[in-house]
Nucleic acid binder design. Structure first.
Lengths: 195, 195
DNA sequence: TACCTTTGACCAACCGTTCAGTCATAAATA
DNA sequence: TATTTATGACTGAACGGTTGGTCAAAGGTA
């Protein structure tokens, strides 16, 4: 049993880190990154400020790890799309699951936008976010190409703008707006099935 | 000359305030509201910190006055649209002048979005911004109604989403993207002339 | 003199970060 | 088994720095 203990320690450590990340994500997304202090996080997680720095070397690194974790979840959620052969259906699946996630956790997506706007473009966190958006766009381009459109890049750009815009509307106005779902369905009809 | 002096003082005071507002807007939009200190503004404006508080009772009030001033300019810029009888042409004018302003001063619009996301919803500044967006939406609704569409509200919403999305793309990716102008022209064709 | 603008030293509060030191527990030793 | 030693999670006071905001005093003008 003795030889296992080291790995057990590591597992315990990972679990503790995860607990902190969950709390930090909650606070970052609700109050904003800048407006959340290390003290806030430590208090909410019921640990000391010092322990925070045992696990994460700085507030910035903590943010990085938060982003990595949550984006891993997002990527995992839309991974199933690769199974879908038909590009039209694949795109519809992507749109629907993306907006399901947005509706389930609007604060997180609000945080993504907020960070994209306020982070230093050279920071690691910004790069992580940027990498994700780039992948999304490239994916859309290849789908429209697969659909056989000649103007696939332009289409992907227009599609991206509409998705961003709809997401912004949801983030800023909230669900109360009845027009949202109707417009989303309309967008699916247009971009997936061109009708 | 003596009887005028009071008004002259007031005019002088307004001029000084305006000078501070211009500097503050520059810094707020380039570094972000939270990351700009009163000291930064005072130094850049070549005045003392104390004098700042002679003119503006707090940093929040300064932001309010900045927003009021810049939005006044924006409203003034699109005011000419009311002269255009034809709703299709009026909408095209609105879109073009809006994006001209965005291109001329992307930092300012980035600031608008950033503030909308991070300000307390009860704050005066948030209300000022919100009021402006509401007016834009209502205006779009009435234009589409005037055009004779039955689904004018839904159309206005979709239009708003596309405009927001395009603006976000521009703010985040910058002008380098060749697809932007093409997509904007496409949006004008679709939303103004339904082709 | 009297009245204003303007200054910049000053304040308390808060920030991210550090670090000397505590303590329960596990490993090693006898 | 009993005792010592080593580990690393954990604490919280303290640090240097920055913040928004205040105020007594100096400067300018009439």
């Amino acid at each position: 049993m003795a030889p296992l203990s080291k790995e057990q320690f590591e597992a315990q450590r990972q679990a503790s880190k995860m607990k902190i990340i969950v709390v930090a994500l909650e606070l970052f997304s609700k109050k904003g990154f800048i407006n959340t202090s290390i003290n806030d996080i430590a208090k909410t997680a019921n640990i000391s400020k010092g322990l925070m720095y045992n696990y994460f070397e700085s507030k910035d690194v903590l943010l990085e790890e938060c982003l990595k974790m949550v984006l891993e979840g997002v990527v995992g959620g839309i991974q199933a799309a690769t199974q879908i052969k038909n590009p039209e259906e694949r795109l519809e699946f992507l749109i629907r699951t993306s907006f399901d996630m947005l509706k389930e956790n609007p604060h997180i997506w609000k945080m993504f936008v907020s960070l994209s706007l306020q982070l230093d473009k050279e920071s690691a966190s910004y790069r992580i976010l940027n990498e994700y958006w780039s992948q999304l766009f490239k994916n859309a381009v290849s789908i429209f190409k697969e659909m056989g459109y000649e103007d696939y890049e332009e289409r992907a750009f227009r599609y991206g703008a509409m998705m961003d815009g709809l997401a912004m509307q949801y983030i800023l106005l909230g669900e109360e707006n009845i027009l949202f779902d109707k417009t989303l369905q309309g967008a699916i009809n247009i971009y997936c099935y061109n009708k």
